[in-house]
Design a protein around this nucleic acid. Structure first.
Lengths: 225, 225
DNA sequence: ATCCCTTTGTGAACCGACGCACAAAGTCGC
DNA sequence: GCGACTTTGTGCGTCGGTTCACAAAGGGAT
């Protein structure tokens, strides 16, 4: 016998966590369009996944659907937001204000989802002092002070590759345990620190691999099978 | 007989393909530092993976190591490059020249790996005609013509969300079968088309989830590991 | 109130990926 | 030339994730 308010299972599979933001976005779109209830089938279609998978994912958060009806859009938005920790606001610092850092600072998708850019930092004196997305770019020397003073808990690394590890070390020393890394290097951090990596060129290389396959690559001419 | 050229297995696991670029980067770094040979242990450490996994990954391309010695760095670079299709040069078009598109256009990691930005396209007349990263921004009306004329085979979508599906449809009609999508929407495409998605805000949300856990989220008791 | 229809939540089979651990293969020193 | 040592390549147990398929649960119609 499970109490309906059974707090969600503490062990949510990583694969599920990675899809929750997808569901959340789809649900937000539906809420805006005034849709009150949605079936797993429809929501799965909107998120581009299999409906059984979606139901299993949601079941990890608790039993929030109604059989024969579906899920209440607004309630589900709230539950997923809470699970992802988006009901609080997260102070994010972006280190490295080159082209990419600038793009990130201006990217609306962050702010709209519980994230607040609390600082922009760079080492280049040419850039320090600039105003970008309504924020003043501060010098990297201020890193630790800024992190402490503004309660930064997530850092985005958009520095050149050579600087990434050093900045990372300082950030970790300052107590940050969540890092989003855009620099094309493998960061070494303590186990307690979470690093997610986004590498634009890797994605392209994976595409190239498949494209080569489809095209029947130059060297794979006659010998297949 | 240099040719144990067991034509590499055609069925390379997706997970392996996703790691090959990682190995390639590590190997390139070693080559630059003049390292001629590397063991699976060392290369695995540099790429941040388990050495058994690395050996199994490489074994899918063929038997390119020497027992008791390791792998020849330069030869392995060549083999992986060839497998990924990086020995040819790929013409890439970037559609959407906002902050992100600009950052991508200026990102050096592409060019250095067999990718050539062949076109920048945008719908905004304010932007069309600008020179960015040495390229002239062209109007989106030219999309099909540019794709055909310059042999573009990979398209990067960096448009606003609302425009993405429409541009995607046109791109697919023009014969492109590989798309890297930065717009926060689920694109609908034929099965024959490959779409990879990069979503910056999703990565942050995943970090927030783990951060909340670590911090002992609002409803969370004492059981964090 | 009862029956039928819809949709959830999940048991269970399946599939791919991971990593251990070891035999095979090759090098190097003597 | 030979034996000890190093390192690859892989068989195999395990695990997490995906999917199918269905019983249970609820709503609505009559």
């Amino acid at each position: 016998m499970k109490s309906p308010s059974q707090p969600r299972d503490r062990g949510i599979p990583e694969a599920t966590v990675a899809r929750l933001p997808l569901y959340l976005r789809a649900l937000n779109g539906m809420a805006e369009r005034g849709i009150a209830t949605v079936s797993s089938e429809d929501l799965a279609a909107a998120a581009g996944v299999n409906s059984a998978k979606l139901r299993k994912d949601l079941s990890h958060l608790g039993s929030y659907g109604t059989r024969g009806v579906g899920y209440d859009v607004e309630y589900l938005v709230y539950q997923i937001s809470r699970e992802l920790g988006l009901t609080q606001d997260w102070a994010v610092a972006i280190v490295g204000v080159g082209n990419l850092g600038r793009a990130l600072a201006n990217y609306g998708g962050f702010v709209s989802r519980g994230f607040r850019i609390a600082a922009l930092l760079d080492a280049d004196p040419e850039i320090v002092g600039d105003d970008i997305a309504g924020l003043n770019v501060e010098h990297i020397d201020e890193l630790e002070a800024v992190i402490g003073r503004r309660g930064v808990s997530i850092v985005v690394l958009a520095t050149p590759a050579v600087a990434a590890q050093e900045v990372c070390d300082r950030v970790v020393s300052a107590g940050v345990t969540s890092i989003l890394n855009f620099a094309p290097v493998v960061l070494s951090v303590p186990d307690s620190v979470d690093v997610r990596k986004v590498d634009l060129s890797i994605e392209l290389q994976i595409l190239a691999f498949h494209e080569q396959r489809k095209a029947g690559g130059p060297l794979m001419a006659v010998d297949s099978q």
